[in-house]
Design a protein around this nucleic acid. Structure first.
Lengths: 220, 220
DNA sequence: CGAAAGCTGACAGCCACCTGAAGAGAAAGA
DNA sequence: TCTTTCTCTTCAGGTGGCTGTCAGCTTTCG
């Protein structure tokens, strides 16, 4: 596994680097966000270890930008902030996990192993559903050869279904995925977006499971 | 997702149960390890939430035994012990994640979502009963290859039988399972739903034990 | 045979869901 | 900065499917 470590504490950073090397992974180590951005753009990493407090800014923003660009590389946050709000903020920003300093190096190994297992099966970037062709990486969809454009929310919703074929997702789950934990939605937003997706992608693309939730269309 | 909650604190347990329900999952809740073992043996769960300190022993041993038997059901540990050593012991014993009490319920939701995502790629276990094929996770049933759709109540009822093959369930038990406390039913609702299930799934799917209750069909 | 228990078709009320529309807000461009 | 355009949330009205209730019928058993 190829790992990018973003950490400005030299003592902790060195310890983490050595531990990861001992586990048989390769590590690039940077201490600033601008250097991290360069590395992410020029190399493909399997995992980012991201400290939240860095000399040139907060890691949360970096993570948000990363996700905004469509990068889905797993990220584990390293933070000294033992506040629930920070953990949630991190998870919302797109982190896959977090570790609160000080942490034990053997625990870090366990987490790396979990992430490696989680992502060992690479998803096929090209998905075909009925008359639809979906390129998850490029965020593009064609319907019977004709290109279809989705808005941000629509894509987030649709992607959620595509990544979990067969599973029924409740509105609560979908809201959790689409919105921050703090920002509760008090209306039928999910219904509206489902309605729009059906209009754009065909009415059979998403099935309603009354009283339970929604599911990717089985007719396709 | 079907979740088994093993937690002896009634206040926390109830809160967790309600949160999970709100997320669209179904929960069985036990307060002792021996009861947990019974449940694990008699039903297929997608996730275990395991408290470490229980009246009849430590959860770590329970988890070790589970893994020893080859059970790979994901386990999230709930613990009041904010010690790194305990976390590591848990991860080493085969836990997939842990949460330290007190934790935020929205964080629990996030973790459940992560587990659901992690295991969504795996094919769901199929239960076969006669000409029926049942995918408990996807809530789908095929009868002789033909897809059958159940309503929410019908599914809840049928699921109850499938999870307890061989057991005779009284109408009172079934009502308790299908309806929240407070919402009393004063009619033959269970009979009606059993009737509807038989119509959809075949008349031998559920046997009547006169004067006692119902049982999953043995003919199959 | 009679009584108790169980079965099922019918139905009405309710509620989950759908969708068009409107206003607020953000992004893009001048 | 102002304007324009696009997007998202909220709301309200309409619709249909689900579900509890009941009545009448069938089955079981003493």
């Amino acid at each position: 596994m190829r790992i990018l470590l973003i950490e400005d504490d030299t003592i902790l950073g060195a310890a983490v680097r050595d531990q990861i090397n001992a586990d048989g992974h390769s590590v690039d180590w940077v201490t600033r966000l601008d250097a991290a951005a360069d590395h992410v753009n020029s190399a493909a990493y399997d995992l980012l270890l991201l400290d939240l407090m860095l000399p040139d800014g907060r890691g949360i923003g970096f993570l948000r930008d990363l996700r905004k660009k469509g990068d889905v590389t797993p990220v584990i946050i390293l933070t000294a902030l033992d506040q629930i709000s920070d953990r949630i903020e991190g998870l919302n920003a797109g982190a896959d996990d977090y570790m609160v300093k000080p942490f034990d190096l053997s625990e870090l190994s366990a987490r790396l192993g979990a992430v490696a297992r989680r992502y060992s099966g690479n998803p096929n970037p090209l998905v075909e559903i009925g008359e639809l062709r979906i390129d998850l990486a490029a965020r593009s969809i064609t319907r019977s050869g004709r290109s279809v454009t989705l808005t941000a929310r629509e894509w987030a919703l649709f992607e959620t279904f595509v990544q979990r074929p067969g599973l029924i997702l409740s509105k609560a789950q979908l809201e959790e995925r689409l919105y921050s934990f703090g920002a509760e939605v008090e209306s039928n937003t999910i219904e509206v977006h489902v309605s729009r997706l059906r209009k754009k992608l065909g009415h059979t693309i998403i099935d309603t499971v009354r009283g339970v939730g929604y599911r990717l269309g089985t007719a396709a």
